[in-house]
């Protein structure tokens, strides 16, 4: 008997998201009939130009906004309608660190655990462990303003990981950091995700970052449609890297809707 493939962890089915224009003159489409699925344990890098709808897709996935039409399914639930079903299941690392300025580094990491009703003593032990893993021992009592940009972003990563989520969503988490810090954090991030067997969606507008982080790359065209998809295995991260990079550059250079190629098959 043939064994059926496991159901994907995340599935977008024909999802469209429209926003009303601020001046009330109709609406604009940020995501247009988007469909894709992500398997458990996969890191999917989503790449696209600024304003192509990556962050809207991210907010739909996080359950922060509701699709206009179509269906978003995460572990069998609608993340917007069944908002509370995802308590502790989704960890988010945002583009900016979004640390609470009135909380110390330790208390910022404790935040998610506190919301999930963990005991303070246990939450502190976990938070200290994560800060230590991310090289922030000795900074537990520092307020965010006393930390550098890289350190603050590490605290926000620790905050997301501390709740042991099944799914990690990252929205250009290293875009505001210098290249050296971003590179280190990127490597650390991939190591942590793989080690813990998490599923991650990683949004970026840097081709190299997407190729370094992702097991699979999805390139978006405005309004959030998949224009290109490639799987990043050992071969494609090595010798095949340049070919994929060229292809991505070519796709990105095309204006949305003008001569856009059909979605090619996933490059193995």
């Amino acid at each position: 008997m043939q064994e059926s493939a496991p159901a994907p962890l995340i599935r977008f089915s024909n999802v469209t998201k429209e926003f009303a224009k601020p001046d009330g003159s109709g609406s604009f489409t940020a995501v247009d009939r988007l469909s894709f699925s992500i398997e458990k344990g996969e890191i999917v890098a989503v790449l696209g130009k600024t304003g192509c709808g990556k962050s809207t897709m991210f907010n739909l996935l996080a359950g922060l906004i509701e699709p206009t039409s179509g269906k978003v399914d995460v572990t069998g639930h609608d993340p917007f309608q069944d908002f509370n079903a995802f308590r502790g299941k989704i960890g988010i690392v945002f583009q900016n660190d979004r640390l609470m300025p009135w909380r110390t580094a330790l208390d910022n990491v404790v935040l998610g655990l506190e919301i999930l009703d963990a005991r303070r003593s246990e939450a502190e032990v976990i938070a200290r462990r994560w800060l230590s893993r991310l090289g922030l021992s000795g900074h537990e009592g520092d307020y965010p303003h006393a930390l550098s940009g890289g350190m603050r972003q590490r605290v926000s990563i620790a905050r997301a990981f501390a709740v042991e989520p099944d799914i990690l969503l990252c929205d250009e988490p290293f875009s505001s950091l210098d290249e050296m810090t971003a590179r280190d954090l990127r490597a650390e991030f991939v190591r942590l995700v793989k080690q813990a067997g998490k599923t991650a969606v990683f949004i970026t507008h840097h081709i190299n970052e997407a190729m370094d982080v992702g097991d699979r790359i999805m390139v978006f065209h405005r309004p959030a449609r998949i224009a290109y998809e490639a799987r990043m295995d050992a071969a494609s991260k090595g010798a095949g890297r340049q070919a994929i990079q060229d292809e991505i550059l070519k796709v990105l250079s095309l204006e949305a809707g003008e001569g856009m190629p059909p979605v090619p098959a996933v490059v193995a």
């Binding site: 308590r87 502790g88 989704i90 900016n96 979004r98 998610g112 919301i115 999930l116 709740v163």
Partner: peptide, 10 residues
């Protein structure tokens, strides 16, 4: 930003 971050923990 802080509101959305906090809401992400439900």
């Amino acid at each position: 930003d802080l509101f959305e971050m906090t809401m992400s923990f439900r």
